[in-house]
Design a protein around this nucleic acid. Structure first.
Length: 310
DNA sequence: GCATGTCAAGTTGTG
DNA sequence: CACAACTTGACATGC
């Protein structure tokens, strides 16, 4: 059983990228270090990091299964600095390329067999709505990198934000719409959009998502930081609209580290305050996945599952 | 061996 | 105008 069961409702709890108490350690490196190495030793080092990270993904899923965690967000750094302009590389450049592919496919099979959903959440540099062509081009490249990993592991979701405002949200949404078409259709099929904590609310994104067929990931913490006048109930149902039947919606939750009355509501706390979980969600008639964004990682997921079963 | 400084990228908001 | 915050630890380096 990978889902929390509350009455008839099934909530699938998700962990983001890392564990604090499990023997799962993802390695990384930096472009400035790689630049000092010859091409051969550079590729050797990267190959061994990527292979180890792929094995760690398997370990991560085994741990998730044991804990009843039903979704896992894979770190964008699984293959470090893959799209860097100077030290970027391709999987086929590696001595261990086939071994890495096999390891990632096995992780994907394990996820399917154990009903664990996989996703990616590329970071803040991926901006499809930027007025700067170079930023858009880099973002497209990075999304294609994410797609490669998603294809190997079977991850169904690549979740991004709309981007900056650049003085006009309406114009920026229009640019997103145009630039989105530049993505290969296989990549587009995995993209979701999430409301953010400073600019784009569920109301801002709903029309675009409906038109382009992009599922809207509802982050209730961001909605509280960056409200649009909609109640949580209304925003939830607006986001659910964008997920076609049979596709399980994603929600995100977190609690503010310094409390709701502080100047800084955005930083994430170690754990989720159960009071921040919208009671309305317990009455939904649809199953959903809830990614828990909390610093205590799997401990926070386990605590929230326990708190909600009371 | 341990402490420390560094790390590719964009954008916004604060001081 | 400069810098921190999103996230975020892990690594190489230097003592």
């Amino acid at each position: 059983m990978v889902t929390g069961e509350i009455g008839k409702l099934m909530i699938r709890f998700g962990l983001c990228c890392l564990f604090v108490n499990e023997p799962v350690r993802f390695r990384t490196t930096t472009a400035s270090y790689l630049k000092k190495l010859s091409r051969k030793s550079r590729l050797g080092k990267l190959s061994s990091i990527c292979l180890e990270n792929s094995k760690n993904l398997q370990r991560a899923l085994i741990s998730a299964k044991r804990m009843g965690i039903g979704a896992f967000r894979i770190s964008s750094d699984l293959f470090p600095v893959y799209t860097h302009p100077e030290t970027g590389y391709h999987l086929d450049d590696f001595p261990d390329a086939e071994h890495i592919r096999k390891t990632l496919r096995e992780a994907g099979t394990f996820a399917v067999e154990n009903n664990i959903r996989l996703s990616f959440h590329p970071d803040q540099f991926i901006i499809i709505s930027s007025p700067r062509n170079e930023v858009v081009a880099n973002s497209v490249r990075d999304l294609i990198y994410h797609f490669m990993l998603a294809d190997l592991t079977g991850a169904e979701i690549i979740n991004i934000h709309l981007g900056g405002r650049y003085g006009s949200k309406v114009d920026s949404i229009e640019r997103f719409r145009r630039n989105f078409e530049k993505l290969p259709s296989a990549v587009r099929a995995r993209i979701t959009l999430e409301n953010d904590d400073i600019s784009y609310t569920p109301s801002d994104l709903h029309g675009l998502c409906m038109e382009l067929g992009i599922p809207l990931v509802y982050d209730v913490h961001h909605h509280r930081c960056n409200p649009d006048g909609l109640s949580i109930e209304a925003a939830t149902s607006m986001c659910l609209d964008t997920w076609r039947k049979g596709k399980e919606p994603y929600f995100h939750i977190s609690s503010p580290r310094d409390g709701w009355n502080s100047g800084n509501k955005k930083s994430h706390a170690d754990y989720i305050d159960p009071g921040d979980f919208p009671t309305h969600w317990l009455k939904l008639r649809r199953n959903f996945t809830l990614d828990v964004e909390a610093k205590a990682k799997e401990l926070a997921v386990q605590r929230l599952m326990k708190d909600l079963r009371v």
